[in-house]
Design a protein around this nucleic acid. Structure first.
Lengths: 204, 204
DNA sequence: ATAATAGTGTCTTTCAGACAGTATGAT
DNA sequence: ATCATACTGTCTGAAAGACACTATTAT
C-alpha cells in the first residue's frame, strides 16, 4: 500500500515465454521439499522478496490450455500482504516493479485476470475481516487502521462508528505506554490479538 | 438438502487406495477435452450424477505428500449444489451415499478436511448470497427460501424482516399466476432473476 | 366456521452516521 | 495561545426484530 493505492510487485520476465513482459512472481512445486502448495508459495515468496511470517492466503487455481503458450497448465495462486514497514526492505531485495493493483498495465499470461481476482478478493475481505491490519506495521493507531480499511474498501468510513465497531470486535489490544509520534496529539498504538486473519459476522 | 440437513454424496471406493471407504467423487483432468478445471468438475459431475447446469464453484486446492498413499498430489476441489427437485433423479443415477455434510462419518484421504472447508464456505456464503436459492427448485416460495437460508446459516430468521430484505435486494421475480399447492393458503412462486450466484453487501 | 400458512403494517429497539465538544501534544 | 490530530459523547435517522393483524385457501 502506498498513499491510497494498493501496489502489486511484478517481475519483468527474462526467460521465455513473454520475455520482457511483466508477470506475477511464481515457481514450480518441489514435491521433495514443499509440504503443500502454500509451502511452495511461501518458499518462492522468501526467495523473491525475503519475506517470511506474513499473511499469505490461497486465492484460487487458474487453469486451461491458452494461459501459457507452452500448453495446458494450472496455477495455484496465493497472495501475500507486505506490511508497510517491510516494504523498503523488500523493494531493495527484489527487482520488482510496483504497479497499482487496480490498474496494473499490460501483463503476461492470464495475469490480468488473476490480478482482477486478487483485487476483488481483497476488496471483499477488507470489509469483514482484519485483513487491512496486515498491511500495517505490527503496531498501529486506530487512524492508521481506519485509513487502511478505507483504501482497501475504496470508501470513507465514519470515524466514531469505526472506533465503536473495532472496540466491539475485540480484535486489538493496546500496547501499554506506546504512542505514535505525530505533529499533533500522539495516538495510542494497538496490535492484533490474534496472529491470523479474523473474519467478522458483519461488515466494518 | 433434506429436512434441516445438508447432505453430501460420497462414493464407496472399489479401486485402491482405500477400497471400501467413502470418498468424494473425483476424476483426473483431461487436457484434451477440459478447457479448465471447472470443465473437468462439470464433466465428472455429469458422468457421476447426470447433473448439468447447476451451481458449481471452485472451493480451493488441497495438496501435499500425505493426503494420498500414492504420493504427493494436488486436488482442485469444486462443490456443486443439487436442486431439491433434481435429487431423486440424481440418487437414482448414481450409487452415492448421502451423508450429513456436518457429520459425514469416516471418509478416505483428507476428505474430512475438505468437507469441513465446504461446510464453512457454504455457511459463510449463505449469509450474504443467493446460494440458498440454488438448493431449491427453480420456482419457490418465500417461505421455502427462508427455510433454506435458515438451514444453511444454521439460525432462525425473522420472517417479515426476511421478506423486506429479499424485496430490497431485488434478486427475485414473481412467476405470474403461479402459486404453490398447500394445505393452507397458497403462496406466490418466485424465481431468481439472474442465473448465477449473487453476492450481497450485507448479510440477510 | 376453523385450521393453517401467506403476507402486511406498525411499534420498538438497536445500530450506524453526523457532529459537536473535549483532550493532548507540537509549535 | 493556536494548530493539528486523537478521542468521546450524544443526537438523529435508518434498519432490524417483534408481533399483531389481515388474507386466502383446505377441510
Amino acid at each position: 500500500m502506498k498513499g491510497d493505492l494498493v501496489l502489486v510487485g511484478l517481475l519483468t520476465r527474462d526467460q521465455p515465454p513473454h520475455v520482457g513482459e511483466r508477470a506475477l512472481p511464481g515457481g514450480y512445486v518441489h514435491i521433495d521439499k514443499d509440504s503443500d502448495t502454500e509451502a511452495t508459495a511461501r518458499r518462492v515468496l522468501k526467495e523473491k522478496t525475503g519475506l517470511t511470517g506474513v499473511l499469505c492466503e490461497q486465492l484460487a487455481t487458474f487453469s486451461g490450455p491458452e494461459r501459457d503458450p507452452r500448453g495446458w497448465s494450472a496455477s495455484v495462486v496465493y497472495y501475500a500482504v507486505i506490511p508497510e514497514d517491510a516494504f523498503a526492505e523488500v523493494a531493495e531485495h527484489a527487482p520488482l516493479d510496483w504497479v497499482p493493483l487496480g490498474n496494473p498495465g499490460r501483463v503476461a499470461f492470464d495475469h490480468a485476470r488473476v490480478l482482477t481476482a486478487v483485487a476483488d478478493r481483497i476488496r471483499a475481505r477488507a470489509a469483514y475481516s482484519s485483513l487491512p491490519a496486515w498491511f500495517l506495521a505490527r503496531q498501529f493507531t486506530l487512524t492508521d487502521l481506519r485509513r487502511s480499511y478505507e483504501v482497501l474498501i475504496g470508501a470513507p468510513l465514519n470515524d466514531s462508528a469505526f472506533r465503536r465497531k473495532i472496540n466491539e470486535l475485540d480484535m486489538l489490544e493496546p500496547v501499554e505506554g506506546a504512542k505514535s509520534k505525530s505533529t499533533a496529539r500522539p495516538a495510542q498504538l494497538y496490535r492484533l490479538k490474534e496472529p491470523r486473519l479474523t473474519l467478522f459476522d458483519r461488515t466494518i
